[in-house]
Amino acid sequence: MQISTLEAIEILGTVAFAISGSFAAMQKRLDPFGVLIIAFVTSIGGGTVRDLLLGDTPVAWMRDVNYCLLILLTSIATIFFKTHIKKFKVTLFLFDSLGLGLFTMLGIQKGIVFGLSPGICIALGTITGCFGGIIRDTLLNTIPLIFKREVYATACILGGVLYYALLYFNLKDDVAQIVVMAFIFALRIVVVRYKLTLPRFGF
């Protein structure tokens, strides 16, 4: 069975966010059931919000149980391999950044399928990439990254703008998608490595 580029992105994004959610839960010392729940909401949270906004129901994970099984197997594998991974924080960051890039592109593509404008597609990409992490962090009693000074949602927006710019200059769509996902992933690494933040407003 041949897998399309979009399906491959969704599978990789689901795995990346399931690992991210599992490690976040294990950092908080949750039991295996808690780890599974956090992995699940991290993986499907953004896509669920996106599909509800589009009126595309039942939402994607309800139509295809294979994604639920994928999250379950990924979570179990992550729990078993946790003893071989010493730096939980680094691992969580890397997979969260990878999932952010993959799911942002997935959300943009979903908006394109529905014939929406570029601005709305970028918003959908940002929602798909960020909302799973928001739900995860909220359940774990942590301030979500999107509400801190870190370049998080901004990375999704910049990635979306870059995608449409690349299409404007006639770059092949598949290549543009790969470039954008790599850009978001690399941008997250750079801003964290060099402690770059957005300006803070308020009193």
Rank of each mutant, 00 (worst) to 15 (best):
F81N: 05
L52H: 02
R63H: 04
V161W: 02
L100N: 09
G159C: 11
L139C: 12
M105E: 03
V65T: 12
Q177P: 00
L106E: 00
I76T: 07
G46A: 09
Y168T: 13
G125I: 05
L12E: 03
E10V: 03
I157M: 10
L187S: 09
F185V: 06
G21Y: 11
D51E: 10
D173C: 01
G129V: 07
L140R: 08
Y67P: 04
L116I: 08
L100C: 08
D56E: 14
I134R: 02
Y168V: 00
A16P: 03
D56H: 11
L30V: 02
G55I: 03
G45H: 09
P32L: 09
I112C: 00
T128I: 03
N170A: 14
G202F: 11
A39V: 06
I71L: 10
F131Y: 14
A24S: 15
R63L: 10
P32W: 06
L139D: 07
F17A: 05
G47K: 08
V59Y: 05
I3C: 04
A123S: 14
S43I: 04
G133M: 08
M26A: 07
L171H: 10
F17D: 02
C130Q: 01
T5G: 03
S117A: 12
L98M: 14
G115H: 08
L53P: 05
F131P: 01
T57M: 13
L171P: 00
G99L: 10
P32D: 09
F40P: 00
A155D: 11
I157P: 07
Y152N: 07
L162N: 05
T48P: 04
V35L: 04
L69R: 06
I112W: 00
T91P: 00
Y152H: 07
V49W: 07
G13Q: 12
Q109V: 13
L106F: 14
L72F: 15
V35I: 15
G159P: 11
I143R: 12
W61H: 15
T104K: 01
R149Y: 01
T142F: 00
F80N: 03
R136W: 11
T126Q: 01
I112G: 00
F185M: 12
I3D: 04
C68H: 03
V113K: 12
L100E: 05
R200N: 02
I9Q: 06
L72W: 05
I37L: 15
I135P: 02
I134P: 04
F147P: 02
L92M: 12
I37R: 01
L53D: 08
I127C: 04
D64C: 01
L12Y: 13
L198W: 01
L116K: 05
I127L: 13
F103A: 00
I9S: 10
L52I: 15
F147G: 02
D137F: 07
D96M: 06
I9E: 09
L158F: 13
I157L: 14
T126C: 14
D64M: 01
T126K: 00
L166N: 07
I3E: 08
D31S: 07
